[in-house]
Amino acid sequence: MNGRTGVARPRTVDEVTAATRGLDGRIAYVAGATDLIIAQDGIPWPDLVIDITQVAGFNTVEVSRGFIRIGAATTMTTLSNHKTIGTEMMALARAAAKVGSVQIRNRATIGGNIASAMPAGDLLPALHCLGARIGILRRDGLHETLGFEAVVVGRGETCLGNGDLITTIYLPRETPKRRISAFVKTGPREVLTIARLGVAASIRLNPKLNRVEDARVVAGALAPVPLRMHQVEATLRDREIGQPLADDFLFALSQAVDAAIPGRHSQPYKRRAITGLGLDLLQQLFNREFDIPSVQAEPA
């Protein structure tokens, strides 16, 4: 440690890099601080705390032709109120709207949700199913852009080394109306609840909007990292929208829970809960009601 400790409040990316240069100690980046304050309670603080909320471009959402660019310090409130995100990236808008309470959403940020990498992180399944790419500033000043799966690698684990920083989230845009996404979650309470289970889905419809061409379905709080459920996706892909699709989809969701947490005490609950979540998800995606299948899959 060289004595350059304390707090830095950089206003540019160059200043971020300069703040960490030559420092041996632990570095913590902070935006909303909703996780950091609790995590640091009663234990020594990092050698340098870098507040990234004033860095130019870190609080903005920019919509360009090919993608939506979201600064890492963008709050949940901003995400849930943003017009283009609300129409084209509904899974992310809904996930952001379901985080904590109004008070938390006014502080908590998308970059923090990714960096914390908690299994119940609400934005994570949404970002995964939307094909998010994450812009990272390495400590040596180099920029890198990685796919979601390369960034969130374990429970509370990311690819970020000490001093590395998430700067940007890129969401690819596709033909509006044909690309639809949704997010549902359940927990002990309606509000301010840590997800026991969350599911995000992103689908592409055919030009007539009556068939699913492609689908990505990702579960949150079911595995250490957001779990892409390929067999569930297969029940949607290249299928006509209707009750047979719903029956197969809901059955596959329960099977995915059985495969993910066999024998876990929460398995009986989650394999049923995911059926209810699946119904809500289908309703969000297709804007119509479906029936619960009469025969429930039995635990494997």
Partner: peptide, 25 residues
């Protein structure tokens, strides 16, 4: 994955950062 227009890798110029001592701000 879709190819997107992401920031290019570029060198960083040294700059001075406003910093406060660890004790008080």
């Amino acid at each position: 994955e879709p190819v997107m227009d992401c920031p290019e890798t570029r060198p960083i110029a040294p700059v001075v950062v406003r910093k406060s001592p660890a004790s008080t701000i």
